[in-house]
Design a protein around this nucleic acid. Sequence first.
RNA 1: GCGGCGUUGGUCUAGCGGUAGGAUUUAGGCUUCCCAAGCCUGAUGCGCGGGUUCGAUUCCCGCACGCCGCACCA
Length: 498
Amino acid sequence: MAENANQNKGLQPQARAPGYEDVMNLASRRGYFLRSADSYPNTPAGFWDYGPLGTLFKNRYVELWRRMIVKRDEMVELDTSEVLPRAVFVASGHVGNFSDPIVECSNCHSIYRVDKLIEEKVRRAVPEGLPDIEYDALLAENNIVCSNCKNALKGTRRFNMMFRVGIGPQGEEAYLRPETCQGIFVDIPVLFKTQRIKLPRGFAQLGKSFRNEIAPRQGILRQREFYQAEVEVLFNPERVDLPRFDVALEYSLNISAGDVEPTLIKVSEAISRGVVPNKLIGYYLYLIQSFYESLGLRTERIRLRSLTRQEKAFYSAVAFDLEVKTSVGWLELVACNYRSDYDLRQHAEASKTDFTVEDDGKKVLPHIFELSMGVGRSLYALLDEAYRVDDTRTYLALLPRVAPIQVGVFPLMSKEGLPEKARAIYDLLRYDLDAMYDETGSIGRRYARSDEAGIPFCVTVDQETMKQGTVTVRERDSKMQSVVPAEQLQAWLKTRLS
RNA sequence: GCGGCGUUGGUCUAGCGGUAGGAUUUAGGCUUCCCAAGCCUGAUGCGCGGGUUCGAUUCCCGCACGCCGCACCA
């Protein structure tokens, strides 16, 4: 899809609606997302770096996540290890369930999911947990052949999506975590012993997870190494109707079941109709939906899709995916899973450690509701939403509060003391805000460059600054200019960036 | 992983069996000064490996990566 000549400057309107390619083109040109180790040939797919702007953007997202979710709900923040011993993932179920039974055609090397393949042929459910030889038996008795080359299939084996690592000289078997939360779960006993924590309580963690995808595509949307911002809420299943969750009752969730259009439904009504199991879950669904709304995504483009039994992860009792409509369709940003007491029960049994905590005078094994947020996908969704092309320019209409660089400071000309003055103003701003200074090229060029980077406000220092002490602030989306006294600039900006 | 198509500076592209030209970007300079103006100078490229050939960016094979379809996405 070569759409040439207008990629660099955005001077001509594009004939088609901008899509994933355009957003990623801008993102790589402007230093949001970069392919990892791209200077080396044959670097495997699925690994991405955050460039200068991308790093600021991620930091902004995390800052807002901490403010609007973590701090608002008074969660406990953790940063746990990425490498965990095999036993942890045996208990969590990942060693057994995170692997798929596959069969490879010995002739053309096509790879199939064995259970799915047999299901298709015999038209009844086939569990994915059978011993491998039973799959081979089923393949043989149903005469299942490779759909590509008609070769008979046999030799079922397991493909585990976890990255295996060897610890120390003995290479003791361990894995990179496929989700950040297991590190939280295994710390629960000591946390409750030492940190004076009461139920219900959220535990929040930002970190990397690793999944050895068979064939990652869609770039930043499906990585082998990626950031998750996870929240694990531990609660007593007997006490989910606390008054603190009432703030959510009048809020409208945009819920859809299956692939139908979502409908707005108040939390209170969703609970009474059984769409949402209880007040606690309603409250956290409210927290997550309103978070994405506050980042600038429109409510009608956000849906909480209730997952069917087939779609849910092996540990999940109730599950909603928070999805956002982008140019690549509905994109899953957050998995909201009611994990019940599955994880803590498994870890308690495997580690022979007591995972119960005291609540309401009784020992309880906490249940868990999680919000598992994909950071890279969220950032992509924000860029996709903000991407604008008009007759004269390409720009990112990011909300000021999510913009990676919040303000640019420019001298109108590179002479007559303007650069020194502009530099002094920049120096006043740069510690409290993410600011950039630029004196190269014409002022229009600098505006255009900052528009494409999504900078919401540009401050220009001109002759009036020298005489009157005022600066001109130019707003990205409207191109409107305001004259602001230099000494009020910081406050002026801060009210508009909050 | 299978099938199809593709891969030329950061980006978009022209082109050829005799190792590449433009636009934009970018660095430095001049000039101009409120929305990508102009001029000068410079920088950056044929995805990787192998084969054919006197010579390969060009032809062939393999690989990697990308896109589309299939499969996969705990």
